[in-house]
Design a protein around this nucleic acid. Structure first.
Lengths: 232, 232
DNA sequence: ATAATAAAATAAACACTGTAAATTTACAGT
DNA sequence: ACTGTAAATTTACAGTGTTTATTTTATTAT
């Protein structure tokens, strides 16, 4: 007879394994986690973990999913907690949350945006949509700011490159997002700006030069928004 | 009697090992190279490699050194081959070389600017100065452009943050580089911009959105220089 | 040519790793 | 108590970096 599984216990143990894995990864890097080491810490043999995750890769996948969701949640709560006066304050709260999360979870950030793990291949059908989620709010807010006139497109970003305009024609249909080509481009280079700053900070390429990287981050964001005509 | 070592042969073999290592790394990622696999490919046992590199870490270090130098050389030859008409053409040639090199040597780029390798700790005394080299030419050119009036500092980037200005006071003495604080900051955020674009491109985060990432890269650089008042 | 010698390669061993298969243990339902 | 199954363990295999001791190889001096 099919006995009712102890789903509760199962879930707890799976969660415990994930937690230990996350902890070990934060110590030894994304490529440095080991089933046997996890087992040792839990007083469990390594093969026992296979009852909860079919392979090391599956464990990595759930870690990635968790990381994406955690990042998205952090950005969304930052938006919710921001003063609702205007778009720019909410946007800046989200952007600061991006860096803050990366600093507080450097290995999770590497897991999401850094080098691929040697043997591992991410399942794109699950990882693709997740990767977009953290930025949906930003897209929404910038689009709104453009519509209300709170923001204007600087002349040096006009027009968008021909090849990209052509590509975006089909992209608009598949993604369902409606926005001027120049805005899409601007948001992409905007993302690259903060992403580059965070990446360089995480691997200590900026500290020796500017000292206070947080100040540089705020400086770049404020300059960006000033250029777009947005005022806090 | 101390017999003269076969330095020539030694060097050749060491080079061969390095070459195979680089090749394997490009296949299996920065964390995926194996002494035993290198040995197999060279019909050599793994411990034999220890005669040429004291450990795997030392091998990684020379790969990093090589990568830094190769990147710097690519950027310098790009500058040399550019039309010497004005600063901006040379600068843009260098910046395009940065991306080009990253695309042609993605794993070397990850080795330099990506996740740290699990057990490996880079020797800062050798890796530090090397990390600056690729950008010395850029620093020089932008400084010159500012001096000749070919470039101006946009108002949204003035003034530089207080904390960074304080830090730069000591930095100018140790680095020997003389430049306005705002220029240093602008170059750092400028680096972050192209670095972020390259990083996102390398891990395929931009292609699904804009299609032609190269066009986006040129677009961002041209907009940057347009904003600085520089004309090609 | 031969003997001496140092360099370089190997073999063996150690402590690890992920994973597969077989086996034992523990427990819920009858 | 018995049975069926979930979940753990044991065992094994093929791989990893590295150390040690040993052997082979190559070169130089006689």
């Amino acid at each position: 007879m099919a006995r009712p599984r102890r789903e509760q216990v199962r879930k707890e143990i799976a969660e415990e394994i994930k937690s230990v894995a996350r902890n070990q990864m934060s110590q030894y890097g994304t490529a440095g986690l080991s089933l046997r080491a996890i087992g040792r810490e839990l007083n469990i043999t390594a093969p026992a973990i296979y009852n909860y995750y079919p392979s090391l890769d599956d464990l990595i996948t759930v870690l990635i999913v968790d990381a994406f969701e955690d990042l998205a949640n952090s950005m969304e709560t930052a938006r919710a907690n921001a003063s609702p006066a205007n778009c720019v304050t909410k946007i800046e709260a989200i952007l600061f949350a991006y860096r803050q999360w990366a600093i507080e979870h450097p290995v999770d950030f590497q897991l999401i945006y850094g080098n691929p793990i040697p043997g591992y291949e991410a399942p794109v059908e699950v990882t693709g949509p997740l990767a977009r989620r953290p930025f949906l709010g930003l897209f929404e807010l910038y689009t709104e700011a453009l519509k209300t006139g709170e923001m204007t497109l600087p002349e040096e970003y006009q027009p968008a490159p021909q090849s990209i305009r052509g590509y975006l024609k089909t992209w608009h249909e598949t993604s369902g997002i409606e926005a001027p080509d120049e805005l899409v481009c601007l948001l992409m280079v905007g993302w690259a700006r903060i992403h580059g700053l965070v990446m360089l900070e995480l691997f200590h390429h900026l500290q020796p030069v500017v000292g206070d990287v947080g100040a540089l981050y705020a400086y770049e964001i404020r300059a960006f928004h000033k250029r777009l005509g947005m005022r806090a």
